[in-house]
Design a protein around this nucleic acid. Sequence first.
DNA 1: GCGTCTCATGATATCGGTTTCATCTGTTTT
DNA 2: AAAACAGATGAAACCGATATCATGAGACGC
Lengths: 341, 341
Amino acid sequence: MSTIKDIAAEAGVSVMTVSNVIHNNHARVSPATAQRVREIMARHQYVPNMAARSLISKSSHIIAVLLPIWHGSAASMLLDPYTGQLVGYLEELLREKQYYVMVCSFDQVEQVLALQQTWQMDGMILVLPHEDAITRDLIQRTQAPLVVFDRHYEDLPMLDVCLNDRRGGYTATRYLLEKGHRKIGFAAPSIYESSVIQGRFQGYLEALAEYQLRERKDWLFDGAVHQEGGEAVAEALSHMQERPTAVVATEDLLACGILKGCQERGMQVPEDLSVIGFDDSMPARLITPQLTTIAQDIRQKAATGVQQLFQAMEDETYRNAHAVLDIRLVERQSVREPGNI
Amino acid sequence: MSTIKDIAAEAGVSVMTVSNVIHNNHARVSPATAQRVREIMARHQYVPNMAARSLISKSSHIIAVLLPIWHGSAASMLLDPYTGQLVGYLEELLREKQYYVMVCSFDQVEQVLALQQTWQMDGMILVLPHEDAITRDLIQRTQAPLVVFDRHYEDLPMLDVCLNDRRGGYTATRYLLEKGHRKIGFAAPSIYESSVIQGRFQGYLEALAEYQLRERKDWLFDGAVHQEGGEAVAEALSHMQERPTAVVATEDLLACGILKGCQERGMQVPEDLSVIGFDDSMPARLITPQLTTIAQDIRQKAATGVQQLFQAMEDETYRNAHAVLDIRLVERQSVREPGNI
DNA sequence: GCGTCTCATGATATCGGTTTCATCTGTTTT
DNA sequence: AAAACAGATGAAACCGATATCATGAGACGC
């Protein structure tokens, strides 16, 4: 565990010369000296001390990946395959750029501000699968550049990377319409709370409107959470007088629950009901029938966010950027023409 | 962004007094002064600088969560729901103890050693879903305490938290035997490379032996990876003259693939084939029929690892501990008595 | 031959804390 | 009243790097 002083002493030079070698300051040190110092550093397996470095530079080369604690356990956030995957890609991209990733769950803005200060974080990334009240506050009060995934506020300068949710909802619904469906339901965890789901819902309405259709209240399944919520939707469907021939579900897991619930109640998918999901997550290919779904490119999302972050770190005036990434339809087996067209 | 000096100046005391207040050194500062300093700190939202602190204390309060890069992308590691969940619980537990979590993917031991030094890491946790060659080397060369999940070397002093894989394999097989199965296959990504899978395989053999049975080479499905591997197993089964009535799969995803492959080839689970998986991961409850599986308590696993780590950080002589956590059988729908008993 | 300029290198202060040891005031002991 | 002592506080060194400015040795111009 040698320090820059040890290296300097052994090389018979000052610490500044060693420092200049480390930073490849060719103009400030002769090639011969540089070579000699480099050899000694290699022999000692010298590694600079980040604490000393960040103390004077006021920058730690650490990026915080912030995970809001949602209804109790932080673990639930990384349990979510989407979050895990996103964080994995972020780590990969940041590591390439020689930045370090600190993963931090939190439930108060103050925690984040303190964290940023105590470590002199260079930047922060907020991973937000659900809506929450803290985000606006955090955006306004943070000192370091902050990139937010999946959330945008029109009235605030902010850096964010979102999906074209409107288009996602539209594409899913339009696809069903073109297959001949006219009775199309919509299932979501909470239609009016999350801007993501609102966007998808808007797209759904727009597509319906193009076919001179309007939503029917009894085909809107609000509060359908995860697999259990999907099964509840199936239960509700099974008791309906006039039931939709297709359902747009805003999450794959929800769609899977609907599939499973239907199968258990004697409704066949896609024969009796077509279902389309969102995210193309792992279960989508696992269930039978395989799920038709609206997919997103998580890696591209991560890359876009990292790009925004670095631009903001380099340029103090870059504090307002809004990336909208496109979605694509993945056709599988959970959608077909309605039976009695 | 005030420093300890600013606080000291405003309170009209020396930095040492402020430092003593921060550390609740009641013996070294009068209650009145302490109170006054505390108020000023609160007003300034003072937060100590970790770089300065770790520079002198040679400890950063950072714990590294190390993710070996496996065949390319690091993202794949956090994509794995097991890893994501484990990391989530680790973060939660470490945060409670005021430690910070740095997530680091790596593919060379040197990277890890450099990382540990450059940040003066207090401890490291290696999350290892697959076998790898680097681990032994890392265990032997690391300076900081290191806890390894799911891997144990008898001949090396090390801290690790493993599952009772032998018992898992035994329990799964024994369960099938008690249901009346006598023709039991075994499917795994690689039977002889991973100690985890070897353990499960040993358990499988032991259970068979108790019923005077031996394994049959053609019912050992080696190299079955993920869902695709499972489907390949189903394909192989469908062409068999004499096929097993049940299969033990060492991963849920693998079991799911077998289920799906069987369904597509006209074999019913559990009527024609019983399948038992491992891990009780999210897909287990998603598919139809729901998967009977050997479950583990990931939170307990994380807690045990953290406990080992902290004991090692406190006590330099604590460098050899081997925790073996138990498994439990989760009965669902993918196992029943064989048809023609 | 002397001033100027460049190149290579070094001395020193500094970042924001902690550690160690000193000091100062007032009280108790003898 | 002098000495001893405890309690409260402070001065200064230090951790390992970087930034700023200084210095010394040759090369070059005139």
